[in-house]
Every structure is written in C-alpha cells, then in structure tokens.
C-alpha cells in the first residue's frame, strides 16, 4: 500500500518550545489510524501542520499519488486537495439551515465566480438529502443549525465532512461528550469510512480506540514514541512510563 500522506522530519518551535521534534508519519490511502499521546505531545500541532494552519520550521509533508508538497499551500488549497478536518467542538454555521450547511460542504468548485453563478443541481440536492438521512437529520433540513442539539451538531459536522469527500480525514476526539450509543455509532462510521479513505483519529479514550481496532501511533514530546497495534504499544515499556503509567 503506497502512502497517501507522508510526513518526514518535521519540526516546529514556538517561542523556544519544541512542539514537534523531527516527526515522521505516514498513512495509506485506505487506512484507519489512531494517534494517542499525553497532553502537549503535539497531536493538535500535527493536525495543524497537515491542514496548513501551522508552518513547520523544517521537514516535508507530501500528499497523494503525485507526492504533492502541502507546505507551500494554504488551508483552503489543502482542503481542496482532499484533506478534511473535524474539530473537537462542533463548528457548524449556526445562522444557516442544515441544508445550506451541507450545500456549502458539498464537493463543488470553490472559486467566488463559480459559486456566484452556481445553482444546485437535483443530484446535489439528492446527495444532501441522502447525507442528512444518513446522520438522522433528514427531517431537519430547513431548521437553522443553531437550533440543533449538541449531538445533532456533531452529526451535522460529520455529514459536512462526508459531503466534502475528503481522501484524508483528520478527526479530533470524536467521542468526547458522547453517550455510549453515539460512540458505538461513531465507531462504526469511522471504520466504514476507512474502507475508502485514510482516517486519522486523535483520541484519549482507550476503550474507544480498542473498538476501532486499528494501528496506533503514540506521540510523545513531538515525536513518535511507538507504533503498532494497540496491544503492541500498550506493552511497550516506554509508552507505559510516559503515558499509560500516569493515566
């Protein structure tokens, strides 16, 4: 399996503090990967680098078959290349309807001129309905998303990510604040998504990760400490000492 995302030798320094230290990481085109690590291990900074929010001081980030370098690109260009990101807190456009939110996210030309003259086709609308039905928001298409419950917003955001049709999905603590039933549902969704694309999940909850049943990368002080199956890494003495031992 060739790698979809290849991060090698990346370092970032904030005011003398090395947030990411010579980090190398790669993920295949259809793979589910969990990233764990203590606070400050650089998980969020790693996602910031991949999505173009933070520029690394050194290293390379390449993406896709053509090994496109993501370093010279801005957030929007990277997103258009097919990198989707879900934040920990649901961020949907509360002032707009569920349908408008989904149409915004739908894969389509993004330039102002094209958007100005864009008229949603029937197929687009059908796709929006399908997505909404899938996450249980089919009856709420015309409601303002600000009126939705917290859980419904989470689902709306997931539906928006799906509408974007990303090739790489970065998910930040998806299970936070969810009921057990919702977690189960989320797990199933992530596992099925990973059949067609790369999914990176950052999570603290070991139980959740165990259910994902995938390779795990452990970050510590900005670089990879261990990588392998969950059982493999939980046996690693280093991992136990820096992370599991404390938790």
């Amino acid at each position: 399996m060739t790698a979809l995302l290849e991060v090698s030798g990346v370092s970032v320094t904030f005011d003398g503090f090395r947030a990411i230290n010579n980090l190398s990481f790669s993920i295949g085109a259809a793979e589910l990967r969990a990233i764990i690590g203590p606070n400050g291990a650089g998980k969020t900074t790693f996602m910031d680098i991949v999505t173009g929010k933070t520029r690394p001081d050194a290293g390379t980030v390449s993406f896709g078959e053509r090994s496109l370098s993501l370093l010279g690109m801005n957030e929007a260009q990277i997103a258009r290349e097919g990198v989707g990101r879900k934040f920990q807190r649901p961020t949907v456009f509360e002032d707009q309807t569920v349908e408008a939110n989904l149409i915004l996210a739908l894969k389509a030309p993004r330039s102002p001129w094209r958007v100005l003259f864009c008229k949603p086709r029937q197929s687009d609308l059908a796709r929006v309905r399908e997505l909404a039905d899938e996450v249980g928001l089919g009856d709420h298409l015309q409601r303002k998303s600000g009126e939705l419950s917290h859980g419904q917003k989470q689902w709306l955001e997931i539906a928006m990510l799906l509408a974007q049709e990303p090739r790489l999905l970065l998910v930040d603590e998806p299970a936070a604040g969810m009921t057990p039933a919702e977690r189960e549902h989320t797990t199933a969704l992530l596992v099925s998504l990973a059949k067609t694309r790369a999914v990176v999940v950052v999570e603290h909850d070991m139980e959740f990760i165990r259910r994902l049943n995938c390779r795990v990368t452990v970050l510590h002080e900005g670089s990879v400490l261990a990588e392998g199956s969950l059982d493999h890494v939980t046996r690693d003495p280093q991992v136990i000492s820096v992370y599991l031992g404390r938790g």
Binding site: V135, G136, L137, G138, W155, S192
Partner: peptide, 9 residues
C-alpha cells in the same frame, strides 16, 4: 452500513 442517527425520526 451505518444506521441512521438514532434520535432522528
């Protein structure tokens, strides 16, 4: 394969 979101009618 994903079920509909449980709370959605």
């Amino acid at each position: 394969s994903v079920r509909k979101y449980p709370t959605g009618g």
